[in-house]
Structures are given as structure tokens and as C-alpha cells.
Computed example of a mutant assay.
Amino acid sequence: MPDQDTSDIADIEADIHAHLAEIAEIDAVAVRVYQLRVAHPTDLVAQLAERAGLQVAEVARAERHLARLGLLQPSPGGGWVAVNPESAAESLLAPVEQDILERRITMAATREQLHALSGDYLEARGMRSAKGSIEIVKDLGNIRSVIDDLARTCASSIEVLSPGGGQNEEAMRAALPLDLDVLGRGVRLRMLLQHSARGHRATAQYVETIVAAGAEVRCTGVLPSRMLIYDRHCAVLPVDPEHTGVGVALIRDTSVMGFLGRLFAHYWRTAEDFLADPECDEAAPPEEVGGELRGIERDVLLLMAAGKTNEAIALQLGISRRSVSRLVGRLMDRLGATNRFQAGARAARLGWLASVPPA
């Protein structure tokens, strides 16, 4: 099963790279022909060539290439009709997105089947030493008691992944005294939220309070699961990420803890300050074009490369369309691109699309 999954994912990645390679071939002639076809939809090829100062063969070749990319479609009356670039991107990437969707459905079904073995697995693990065990805690009252105990006894660090938008207000009220207590004891508290949480007043107030007490809070576009890590020795994960009240798993296995620590570090490294103004226009200077993207710029680029419209990006990240338009423009400037296709191709060559795939 793992070998087959790896092969299928590799095929999907190969399709994506093939699309990007084709997009990368858009040259100045194709861009010019596309612009003229938008402005003069009824022109014959010869007329378009005269307007562009090009050979008829050059225009015809450019139009065929633009048609393969979905930027031109045949007109019922003959010739070509220009298509909106965002609509073309949706059509171009739709087969790849369908493959990804089907793979995710298969993975979800496989995960459910494997979860059915959790009881037998945990029973066997219970025979090992306590240090390498995984313990399941059920009932909301028991879960809170365990988390309270871990918070009161931790000595060096607490790391938190908290997906979703605005956080549960009752949970934040219960967590605040514990957070202030651990910060007062000199424990380093680092928390990761999603961009959409910025628009939730109670969450923003909670973040301001703990940051003032010394916590570090960042945000990113997508997080995989809720997670708490205490002193890098014990992690708390939901048994069911969709229904966190069902129960949690306390993980102390050394190898698993190493992986979870690296997972948190990856998301932390690419996130941005939660309290930073997402509307501010702090564009990176041109000489930093080869540098690694961080935070919301990275998330916008990944969603843009997936063919999402500005409106869809704004909805997923929980920011305004005005902010998305600014960020898209900033990315185009940094990449020296004149259109979204060129931006995607150049970002791929720089390795900016090889981090975390958009959800």
C-alpha cells in the first residue's frame, strides 16, 4: 500500500510539473497575441499579425499554444475568443485537482480502517514501559484535568498548534490562567493559529494578553491538527481531529516526539507574527526575490498556483480581498512576472511551491 500511494502521488506531482513546464514557455509573442485577441476578438490571423508586427505563422503558432493553455477557445463564427486567465487556470489544473481529491478520499477511508485497530494497538503498547507509551484519555473533564496537570508541571516549553478560525471562548477563558502561570514561571510558550483567527475579536484579545505576558504567537494558512507539546517529552493529540471532545492521545514515544517536534518547527518557521497588520504593504526589495517566502505571502502564492481566484483565497485565509490583491501584486513584482502563469512558473523554479501544498 505505501509503495502504491507513493507512486500515485509521484504521478500527480509529475502532472503538475508538466503543466508548469508548459506554462513556463509563454513568451512575449504569446502574451502580445493574447492581449490583441482580447482587444480584437473578430480579427483574422493576418489582421492580428499586422497589428502586432509579426509573421502570420508566428501569430498562428502563438494562438495554438494559448489554446492548449485554455487562454483561447474556438469561436462559433471561426477564429478564437480570449478566456479570462483565472478561468483558464481552473480548467488547466482541474484534472490534477480531481486526482488529488480522489487520493484524499482514498486516504481518509484507509485512515478510518486503520483507526479501527487503535484499541488492539494501544492495549499492546500498554505492555511497554511508561516512557514509550501512548495513553488514551476520554471525557472532557478528564482531558482538562490532564492538560492542567501537564501545564502546571512543565518546566521549559509548551508548543501549540490550534487550527480553525476563532477559538472557543470557553476554552480560552479556561486556558488563560494556566498560560499566564506558565509564562510567569519562565516557560516558553509558542502558539500557532490560522490567519482566519485574526478576525475573531475574542481570539485577538486573548493573543494580545498572553503576548504581553511573554508568549510568542504566529499564524499561517493551514494547520494539520490540534496539538500540544510539553517540554518536548509529551504531546497531546485528538483521537478524532474532527471531534476533539471524543478523546485525546498522550504520546511519550521518543521517536514520535522527535517527528512532532520537527513538524511544529516547520510550520513555525514559515509562519508570521499573529499581531502583525495583514493590510500593511511591507514588500520585499527586488534583490530578495530568491529568498524563501514566509507567512501569508507563501500561503497566497500556493493558493494562487493552485488556480484559486482572489475571492477564494481571501475566503480560505480569512483576510480581505483588498489584502489578497496587494499580496498578489507584491508577489508578481518580486517574481518579475507580467501574469499569474509566469509567476507560477518562476515560483516553481525558485522552489517556492515545494513547501506545504494548499488545502
Score class of each variant (00 low, 15 high):
281 D>F: 01
73 Q>A: 08
22 E>S: 03
126 G>F: 09
120 D>L: 00
96 V>T: 10
260 L>M: 14
239 V>I: 10
86 E>K: 05
110 T>E: 09
37 R>P: 05
242 E>N: 13
147 I>M: 09
320 S>E: 00
172 M>L: 12
48 L>I: 03
243 H>F: 00
193 L>I: 11
180 L>V: 06
260 L>P: 13
197 A>G: 01
349 R>I: 03
347 A>F: 13
351 G>Q: 03
319 I>Q: 01
94 A>R: 11
162 S>N: 13
293 L>Y: 10
215 A>W: 14
358 P>C: 08
335 L>W: 14
311 E>T: 13
287 E>T: 09
321 R>M: 02
29 V>Y: 04
156 S>W: 05
141 G>Y: 13
298 R>A: 13
195 H>A: 02
18 A>D: 14
139 D>T: 12
88 A>G: 12
164 G>P: 04
180 L>P: 06
69 L>R: 05
36 L>I: 05
281 D>L: 04
216 E>T: 07
158 I>L: 00
6 T>G: 04
241 P>R: 11
212 A>Q: 14
14 A>T: 11
158 I>H: 01
109 A>Y: 10
84 N>Q: 06
247 G>V: 13
111 R>K: 02
151 A>Y: 10
106 T>N: 14
233 H>K: 15
26 I>M: 04
324 V>Q: 01
343 A>Y: 08
291 G>T: 12
122 L>P: 01
118 S>C: 00
41 P>T: 09
38 V>Y: 05
43 D>L: 08
138 K>I: 09
146 V>N: 02
67 A>P: 04
105 I>F: 11
297 E>Q: 13
40 H>K: 11
291 G>V: 03
189 L>Y: 10
343 A>S: 08
238 P>M: 12
186 G>T: 04
330 R>F: 04
47 Q>M: 05
329 G>W: 12
251 I>C: 13
171 A>V: 11
